[in-house]
């Protein structure tokens, strides 16, 4: 289970990002997981919650967005999402395709409370 290492990598990046905002408190971190990233969402949540407990990030919420792998058909150039493992090109039915993504593992956003009134 490498999700615990990944949870810790996420927290290291959050920590670095927050250094420039010492007065703000980070409430949410948004992470995108590609369908081919080999990362299990539930294990990551478990590892993340275990990693923040009792630290300065206690209560930090992890929002996950799981995205499908995009492919481009080699026959007709159509770009499509690989929704099932068996998916062929919806335009021409060909199976020959090159991957355009799918192994993403990115931090997309942070939601921070900077203590300003009215927020």
């Amino acid at each position: 289970m490498h999700e615990l290492s990944i949870a810790q990598s996420i927290l290291e990046i959050v920590e670095t990002e927050m250094k420039s905002r010492p007065k703000a408190r980070v409430m949410v971190v948004g992470v995108r997981i590609g369908a081919m990233a080999a990362v299990d969402a539930e294990s990551l949540r478990f590892g993340f919650d275990a990693s923040v407990k009792g630290t300065e990030f206690d209560g930090l919420k992890l929002e996950l967005r799981i995205t499908e792998a995009e492919r481009q058909c080699l026959m007709c150039d159509h770009r499509y999402m690989m929704l099932a493992l068996e998916s062929n090109c919806p335009e021409c039915g060909s199976h020959d395709a090159i991957p355009l993504g799918g192994d993403e593992l990115d931090i997309e956003y942070l939601e921070v409370d900077d203590g300003k009134a009215g927020d």
């Binding site: 990944i6 593992l105 990115d106 931090i107 997309e108 956003y109 939601e111 921070v112 409370d113």
Partner: peptide, 15 residues
């Protein structure tokens, strides 16, 4: 609450 868009690979240090 403020939303900060950041595009960072989680494994950027390994990368």
């Amino acid at each position: 609450m403020e939303k900060l868009e950041i595009k960072t690979k989680v494994l950027s240090e390994n990368q």
